[in-house]
Design a protein around this nucleic acid. Sequence first.
DNA 1: AAATAGCGTTTGTCGGACAAAGCGGCTTTT
DNA 2: AAAAGCCGCTTTGTCCGACAAACGCTATTT
Lengths: 253, 253
Amino acid sequence: MERFDRIKVPSAYEMVADAIEAEIVSGRLRPGDEIGTEAALVRQFGVNRSTVREGIRVLEQGGLVRREASRKLFVCEPRAGGLSTRISRALVLQDVTFRELFDTAMVLEVGSVEGAVVHADAEMLAALEDNQERLEAAVNNPVVIAELDSEFHALLARACGNLVLEMAREPAALLFFPSTEMICRRVPEGAGRMAQAHRHIIDAIKARDLDLARTWMRRHLVDWRKGFVRAGREIDQPVERIFARYALSKSQS
Amino acid sequence: MERFDRIKVPSAYEMVADAIEAEIVSGRLRPGDEIGTEAALVRQFGVNRSTVREGIRVLEQGGLVRREASRKLFVCEPRAGGLSTRISRALVLQDVTFRELFDTAMVLEVGSVEGAVVHADAEMLAALEDNQERLEAAVNNPVVIAELDSEFHALLARACGNLVLEMAREPAALLFFPSTEMICRRVPEGAGRMAQAHRHIIDAIKARDLDLARTWMRRHLVDWRKGFVRAGREIDQPVERIFARYALSKSQS
DNA sequence: AAATAGCGTTTGTCGGACAAAGCGGCTTTT
DNA sequence: AAAAGCCGCTTTGTCCGACAAACGCTATTT
């Protein structure tokens, strides 16, 4: 048992990043505000431009700051920031299995649909109906079907009006739903069952029927799993890195 | 409707970061491997050291690379990387409410305890018992109680053997559980109820009793919520930024 | 008024430089 | 011989100065 922790001497670029971050987190800088030019920051902090630039990279990567068309620096609403993508990438590097994705999706998507039953408003229902319409028109097009399924679940999460849930499910969703495309390709009858399940889920939300919504969401996900297995895949295998690279590249920014 | 997207010219430092990231994601560089010195990277990429350094900042922030004691660059298992912290920070900036945290925690913690019932092994149970022992010894010490509660839930998630779930719950947990300290301070009798709930949860896991585990986890969380309200807080208010700053600073790895 | 041409500003990149911190090997001490 | 102290090499963090390309704004041309 050591008595003391290692002393961490903060370097200048970290202090630059922290100083700007503090302004943002405290609310003195609000999303949309612009941070000065690099030269201005150099003047204010009294450090070299290289140092300022390293600090800016940190903030940019952290999703707190964005460069609009390679020009001015803006504080940004940090939802967009590819944070979820990075978590997904981390998961792949840890060799998570499809079963882990599936189990987690079961928890989060059921929670999500429960929230939707309680909170969905007319606008959200319209968006879901619109999605459903496009889905029913897209039979036999695996790419579009997969995208619409992914969008459907994203809409459900949005409908909860719960940003925490929405962001919590995103990393798993990013890896989970893209494989729908592969399933649709190998198990053609899957698309119909998916459309049917989505239909029932939307109806259950409209009827504010919690149990029904839960039931159909579970059925929907179990269907995914069956399709996954029938497509010849092994549920306990890690998400392949090649696949992840493909899935995540589409969702960048 | 525009026909073409804006063309994004990748800058040199981005290409440096992408090149190294590709090596890591593809598995040619494995966690623990060391990347060369900055000078070596300068030679390989044929760019300036400032450029290499900006690229490294990007990877460091992304949790793919770490600098050990300000010396060599290592590829790291990206779990540690403060990604969760950054998501939490993003949530605070979006003014999420305690209700959102609570609802999400309800979904994730119940899912977590379900997983634990199925998967917990002897070692994990021992860790939980150890936590429980320390908790029962810590009555009247809000700081320690809060830490142990947080640890308890982290252990449960770990016990699932589901890394996806573990990482999904972390951002919410980071903001949710620290307020336990505040509750314990204002509602002294809460500690006893917490210990009792933890006790029942551990027993339910040992007995592999799914329903019982769920029930006690729900009760435990509802207790938290009651305590939160009795401590005079408003559940529909956003997480205060000051509080978040405090809560997140402690978890900075 | 719309298109064009300048002009100053800002970013991305470069080369070189230096102090401080860490590492390794060598020498001295015990 | 092991421990402690010393010294030089490497590497990082920071700084300086510089330049081309991209951009925004303004004045000019059509």
